[in-house]
Design a protein around this nucleic acid. Structure first.
Length: 259
DNA sequence: TCAGTTGTTTATAT
DNA sequence: AATATAAACAACTG
């Protein structure tokens, strides 16, 4: 379920297993998931290179290797697996980075997402240039500025990666529930107090989710834990949650708390 | 068999 | 020009 917090966990996982290590080989098991280069280009660019500290922007994992950069997007079902934790390759493993002490596998059941290669900053910008600032790093001033230029529903705005990068369907519902804002509320109707509360709530939710990225199961007072459950009730007021479609996605909210 | 699914892109409509 | 909506992508699960 890769939104910003999960990708941050992947970033740390990548750092643990790949940072500072030299690529011995790249096995492209599913050429279609190398999205912007010929399959052989990835190994050509990375073999013999050493990965540096990985970064993250929104839902993208950015892995520089002293020159070329490998980028991962996880779609809905992407994952990273270390061979030490799981000896055998899996049929959904799409690309494998081979190191001296093991291999790191990019797994993706549904094949949404994939792997991108950038050879320099210009190519990096082609891949990431359309994204807004990272939702966990953006300053309040910039966020409010973007909101002021935005019209339409607030949930659509939060999920728009050009506005801020990293918020997906579940986190958008979580942020709006915690901020007590109705997902269909037009941005232009929000007062400045609502906007500031939205920003602070977004930061708090992201911080909590990055800290405990199993928040969907374990966070007792969060919406995520009950959304989708039959008969799910608002953790604050016990009102039965509403389920609808907003911005094309299944949306849960509390009709009592979120006016 | 059928509905549903956490992401993004594209086409079309407003 | 922006925003909204639906479909497509793809491969499962219940």
């Amino acid at each position: 379920m890769p939104e910003l917090p999960e990708v941050e966990a992947y970033r740390r996982f990548f750092a643990e297993h790949a940072e500072g290590r030299t690529v011995l080989a790249v096995d492209v098991l599913d050429p279609a998931l190398v999205r912007n280069a010929a399959p052989g280009d990835v190994g050509g660019a990375l073999t013999g290179r050493r990965f540096e500290e990985p970064g993250r922007h929104g839902k993208w994992l950015v892995c520089p290797a002293a020159g070329p950069t490998l980028l991962f997007h996880f779609g809905m079902t992407g994952d990273l697996v270390w061979s030490g934790d799981e000896p055998d390759r899996h049929r959904h493993d799409r690309l494998v980075l081979v190191f001296e002490d093991g291999e790191l596998r990019y797994r993706n059941m549904r094949r949404l997402g994939g792997v991108w290669l950038a050879l320099d900053d210009a190519e990096l910008k082609v891949v990431l240039g359309g994204l807004g600032p990272d939702a966990f790093a953006v300053e309040q001033e910039e966020f409010l500025g973007s909101l002021s230029r935005r019209r339409g529903g607030v949930k659509a705005a939060l999920m728009d990666q050009r506005l801020v990068a990293g918020i997906g369907n579940l986190l958008a519902d979580e942020v709006l529930w915690q901020a007590r804002i109705h997902p269909r509320r037009p941005v232009e109707d929000l007062g400045s107090n609502d906007r500031v509360r939205l920003f602070r709530t977004m930061r708090r939710v992201l911080a909590g989710a990055v800290e405990h990225f199993d928040y969907l199961e374990t966070r007792r007072r969060w919406l995520g834990r009950v959304r989708g459950q039959p008969g799910g009730r608002c953790p604050r007021c016990r009102t039965a949650l509403s389920r609808t479609v907003v911005a094309g996605r299944t949306t849960y909210f509390c009709p009592s708390c979120q006016r």
